[in-house]
Nucleic acid binder design. Structure first.
Length: 639
RNA sequence: CCCGUAUUGGUCCAAGGGUUAGGAUGCCGGGAUUGUAACCCGGAGAUUGUGGGUUCGAAUCCCAUAUAUGGAUCCA
């Protein structure tokens, strides 16, 4: 008998050699139907493989991340089977699962493939899927494997085989299709109920541009037709919410060829939004003891040699600016920290003054390759909501807690309630890579871990992902469409205080080195607003909206009344404008709806006589009429 | 950095190598005077990203370049 520990902690006994599928069956039939693979002691394997010893078992369904990727990997095999059936003689490269589906690299020979061929392939896949062919795992010797693909004439698989060791080679077969594959796979093709080919692209064999270009065919598949439909609807919605599209439509920002690629230009409405966001964070930071500073956009090359950024990023950055005087070189600042270190170091610091929290919305410039640029999320000039906290090592945890509190507060305030954090620690196998003693690393790492535990933050821990200068924590935020974005970051840094020889005088009257924390809750204003735009589909929280309401007079006769109302609202600190155009009310409503103005105040004869306004909410419709004071109350309650 | 695709009035889209580059929206002017998602009529607005080339003739074909966009840099 073996003991199987399930994720809920319960332990069950089974005969040695029981499969995950049988275990699932012993729990419930429905579960067994949905299980597509199993995680045994952390390794994902086929659900029909026998378990021979005590183990932790997690049954995987399509809902699990690992289950999904197994499902999609199996779908890639199914697609390959279909392609082979439709186009005899195609040669296969590799076919893994990816974040949103799967692909297979194929060599079509002289043929080409386009999206018009997709329906045919999809149909063939579904036809093959309905045969419910089992994915059969076979261990084969290297010699047999080579013989098989030689016979088949597939040089790509032969090349892959060269790097594999005899004894560890497995084939998977479903229907008549055999592929070299490590697995695991779903039990049979029958659970693939919906497939969609997404696109084709060229891709070099093994990512090497000197090698042959293969056709990469992308697809996605689901266990239920409904799920495919939802997936496609989501993609459609994502397109509608694309911040590049909304940014243009709502006149938030623009790019100009003359100004340069990757350099966003903030238009009045975008600036109003961004300024409000900055002020919000500024105020929260001042409440928490941060001191705002302003530093120049340039710094001498020596500054970045001291900080080490020149050695690390010099080549990848904008090249230095030469002054008329010989030998003077200035760099556009790629980071704010060196300047902030100078601020810390400009006067003697006592331990009683610590922590020192220096904050700046600092604009930095980094040279990104043109191919990397993307809307507001990947740019060459951006403003970090940066701050650097200088503290004593023993204050680290408390400071970390403070930053966590601030970050989660601002995220929640902006409607991001679904987030996790990734803790990046050093690689315990490879400690030489990192600067600083074991002692301070352990202190910092435990400070981060304890702090996240204390605030109850959901975390994943990655070993070896830390920067060489200290451990860090990144916030992964999920938007309204379920997509993950990396936004804020908190990093511990032992390196810069060292390089800048920063000191404070301790209670022992001796100099000590402070620890530095870099942190940016939004990451960058550009990226954050890009993500926020997509998160709320352009319908920003009311308090951020550049224009919170528009007054729509029924006819020109009521423009005067409308203007009067606007003045009253302005006095109450409610922003908006009057649509005085000589248009029908239906037209004005439509335009306001399209521009996503949150509140429409409709005024005509009735309202003017009663001293009221009729309220209409964007996207929802008529709310009813009320006096201006009632509206103020209504408005405040929406904030 | 590599591979593909695109670039046409402010914006979105159309135009088999052959008249004066067409439409929608927006803008301007006039009419209508308005009740919860598009009023009617008229007008202006473009040397088709930029620079070369092929051609009797180029938005259209070729080359270069810029920018945008998608992919590659996810190793069974």
């Amino acid at each position: 008998m073996i003991n199987i520990t399930l994720p809920d902690g319960s332990v069950r006994s089974y005969d040695k050699g029981t499969t995950s599928h049988e275990i699932a069956l012993s729990i419930s039939e429905g579960l067994a139907r949905n299980v597509i693979a199993a995680k045994v002691n952390g390794e994902v394997i086929d659900s029909n493989r026998p378990i021979t010893q005590d183990a932790d078992l997690q049954l995987l369904t399509f809902r699990d991340k690992d289950g999904k990727s197994t499902f999609w990997h199996s779908s890639a095999h199914l697609m390959a089977e279909a392609l082979e059936a439709l186009y005899p003689g195609v040669k296969l490269g590799i076919g893994p699962s990816i974040e949103n589906g799967f692909y297979y690299d194929i060599d079509l020979g002289d043929r080409t493939l386009s999206s018009t061929d997709f329906p045919k392939i999809e149909q063939k896949m579904l036809e093959l899927a309905r045969e419910k062919n089992e994915y059969i795992r076979k261990e084969v010797s290297k010699a047999d494997a080579i013989a098989y693909f030689k016979e088949k004439g597939d040089e790509y698989k032969l090349e892959l085989l060269e790097d594999l060791e005899d004894g560890s080679i497995t084939f998977y077969e479903q229907g008549g299709f055999v592929d070299l594959c490590r697995g695991p796979h779903i039990p049979n093709t029958g659970s693939i109920k919906a497939v969609k080919m997404m696109k084709v692209a060229g891709a070099y064999w093994r990512g090497d541009e000197n090698k042959k270009q293969l056709t990469r065919v992308y697809g996605v598949s689901f266990p239920k037709a409904k799920e495919l439909k939802e997936h496609l609807a989501l993609l459609e919605e994502a397109k509608k919410r694309d911040h590049r599209k909304l940014g243009k439509e709502l006149e938030l920002f623009m790019f100009s060829e003359k100004v340069g690629a990757g350099l966003p230009i903030w238009l009045p409405k975008g600036t109003a939004l961004r300024t409000r966001l900055e002020n919000f964070l500024k105020e929260e930071q001042i409440k928490r003891g941060y001191q705002p500073v302003i530093t120049p956009h340039l710094g001498k090359k020596e500054l970045y040699m001291t900080s080490g950024h020149w050695d690390k990023y010099g080549e990848d950055s904008f090249q230095p600016i030469h002054t008329p005087r010989e030998g003077e070189l200035f760099l556009l600042k790629p980071m704010n920290c060196p300047h902030h270190c100078e601020i810390f170091g400009h006067k003697p610091r006592s331990y009683k003054d610590l922590p020192v929290r220096i904050a700046e919305f600092g604009t930095v410039y980094r040279y990104e390759q043109t191919g990397e640029l993307h809307g507001l999320t990947r740019v060459r000039g951006f403003t970090q909501d940066d701050a650097h906290l200088f503290c004593m090592p023993e204050q680290l945890k408390e400071e970390f807690l403070g930053v966590l509190e601030l970050t989660t507060y601002v995220l929640e305030k902006l409607g991001f309630s679904d987030y996790t954090a990734q803790i990046s620690l050093r690689d315990p196998e490879n400690k030489e890579k990192y600067i600083g003693s074991d002692e301070i690393w352990e202190q910092a790492e435990s400070a981060i871990i304890e702090a996240t535990k204390e605030v109850g933050l959901e975390t994943v821990t990655e070993l070896g992902e830390a920067a060489f200068y200290g451990p860090k924590l990144d916030f992964m935020v999920k938007d309204a469409l379920g997509r993950s974005w990396q936004l804020g970051t908190i990093q511990v840094d032992y390196n810069l205080p060292e390089r800048f020889e920063l000191e404070y005088i301790g209670a022992d009257n001796a100099p000590h080195r402070p620890v530095m924390i870099h942190r940016a809750p939004f990451g960058s204003m550009e990226r954050f607003i890009g993500v926020l735009t997509e998160h709320c589909g352009g319908k920003f929280p009311l308090w951020l909206q550049p224009e919170q309401y528009v007054i729509l007079p029924i006819s020109e006769k009521f423009n005067g009344y409308a203007r009067e109302l606007k003045n009253q609202l302005a006095a109450k600190d409610i922003r908006g404008f009057v649509d005085e155009r000589n248009e029908k009310i239906g037209r004005k409503i439509r335009d306001a709806e399209v521009k996503k103005v949150p509140l429409m105040l409709i005024v005509g004869e009735k309202e003017a006589a009663e001293g009221k306004v009729s309220i209409r909410k964007q996207g929802e419709g008529d709310v009813g009429s009320m006096t201006i004071d009632e509206f103020e109350t209504y408005f405040k309650q929406l904030l």
